[in-house]
């Protein structure tokens, strides 16, 4: 009972208190190492990336082409039916520019990221990736982009085999 409670408890301290030893604490850095199984859908997806191709799966019941691929459709809750290559061109659904790294460290130059609907994937089916060769203020929802791949000999079967997506500028191919 907010009005009837006299005292709210808790003892705050600052980062400085900790660093200067005023708050005793134990430190630990557990490091768990993993080997995540890819399974057939992700394993194929990664293997295709190594070859410079992007693959999805189609569900014949709802008709969706899912990228990244999975072996079952979560809408229809049945196995998906076939492998489908999609293009390495697409449309920006939404984007952002990150001045934060993975541990919230500050970055001088932002990483521009986007959800991209690849040509051949169903409407609304996007993948997350970075944008390059473009300034933050030039990016817009609906912008057409194309993948920039690592050289074949450097690819390792990873999402990062695509370095980034770059804008398709007028006069350049890559659309339909």
């Amino acid at each position: 009972m907010s009005v009837k409670i006299r005292e709210y408890r808790g003892t705050p301290y600052s980062r400085k208190d900790l660093e200067e030893g005023r708050v005793p604490a134990f430190r630990d850095k557990p490091r768990a190492r993993y080997a995540w199984a890819c399974g057939p859908a992700m394993g194929r997806f990664l293997a295709e990336l190594k070859e410079g191709r992007i693959i999805g799966r189609r569900c014949r019941r709802c008709g969706r082409v899912l990228v990244p691929p999975r072996m079952f459709c979560e809408w229809c809750f049945r196995p998906t039916d076939e492998w489908v290559y999609v293009r390495d061109t697409g449309t920006v659904l939404t984007f952002s520019a990150s001045y934060l790294g993975p541990a919230a460290e500050r970055l001088k130059e932002p990483i521009i990221i986007a959800v991209i609907q690849l040509d051949g994937a169903s409407p609304g089916i996007g993948i997350l990736h970075k944008l390059g060769e473009v300034k933050q203020e030039e990016v817009h929802v609906g912008m057409r982009v194309k993948a920039v791949w690592k050289p074949p000999e450097e690819r390792e079967g990873a999402i990062t085999d695509i370095l980034y997506f770059k804008p398709i500028r007028e006069g350049q191919g890559g659309g339909e």
Binding site: L18, A32, W36, M42, G43, L46, A47, K50
Partner: peptide, 19 residues
């Protein structure tokens, strides 16, 4: 395909301060 990709290796590392 030249190979099947079966596993992806990684870790989960965090620093903790336990008061």
């Amino acid at each position: 395909l030249p190979h099947e990709i079966r596993h992806w290796f990684g870790d989960m590392e965090c620093d903790y301060v336990y008061t």
